[in-house]
Amino acid sequence: MSEQAPEELPEPGPPAAPQTRVLGAVAAGGALGALARYGALVLWPTADGGFPWTVFAVNVSGCALIGVLMVLTVERGRVTHPLVRPFLGVGVLGGFTTFSTYAADVSGLLVRQELAVALAYMAATVGAALAAVWAGAVVTRRLLDRGARDVRDGGRAA
């Protein structure tokens, strides 16, 4: 498998955990993530017809964090406890970010004839989310590689 596609992710990095424990971790994380998103919306409500800045910030920050998390867990296997990815990735970040509210907000803006805001919000979220996950993954990979180099060089000097 690795010779055909060397960049293919190992399937899956950490050892598997029992299914009930995985589901429990996903549920607990999802509850926390959804609560955090709800809290953000209570603290920073946005007006109907305006740019939904709060959901925008929630989704973009969640994307940056999953970029970091996936490099640490799956790609480089630095964090290997089998419940870390179900809890933090599938649960917390999956529950924190939302596609349905994003789609419904775009639809709501279209229905209100706020065409410019609808298109700006739709495009800005996709663009910023993809840039955030890319930046999160790339920065984490570089930091890990630098750390590994420092350890190797330090070990040689000692």
Partner: peptide
Amino acid sequence: ALLATGLCGALTTYSTFSYETLRLAETG
């Protein structure tokens, strides 16, 4: 609160959607 913010919000995800899109792009 129960079904829209809670259930639909957590059933759907932007983070995994973005990461899977990134992986597709990075693997050519």
